[in-house]
Amino acid sequence: MTDPWRELYEREYPRLLRALVALGRDPAAAEDAAQEAFVKAHRTGLDRIEKPAAWLLVVGSREVFRRARRSRRELELWASLPERHDEIDTVADRADLLAALGELSERQRTVVVARYFYGLSYDEIASHFDIKSGTVGATLHQAIERLRQIQLAGRLARGVMR
């Protein structure tokens, strides 16, 4: 017999963990938060959670931000990534983007991850994250614009503009 919790865990845990690492820049805190999110989901009960994936992201991201505020740990995740020189989308570019994400406000970070990593619609983001539906688009645009500026600055600083 299929265990629905196992199924949910194996389907959603990797994605949730990556999202939380990107949001909080602390792999250990992200793992704690992801585990916590699943435990909370378990206590709540699957029948009471309409969209488990988004629910887990909401709970997990809150937990990550709460922990970050409390501990203010700033781990340089990408410092452990080796340098490679792919034609496009290099590790350095990805590291720049992830670093830039960390410079955004918590709300901007959450909206960007929900939209571009989870693929949630504007309406879904609005309802799950308690944001006015009319402001999701504007928040996203401001966030991306800020990402672009920070990433550009990073690339200029490294002298790798192509």
């Binding site: 919790w5 995740l77 992830l98 960007v112 939209r115 991306i144």
Partner: peptide
């Protein structure tokens, strides 16, 4: 915006994470 957003999505996808198997998850 979409292009940059998707690039970010791919960047997140490549993050190395320590995927705890279900059996060792806190839930289980």
């Amino acid at each position: 915006d979409e292009i940059l957003g998707r690039a970010l999505g791919r960047a997140i996808e490549t993050l190395h994470v320590n995927e705890t198997p279900y059996e060792r998850s806190r839930m289980a």
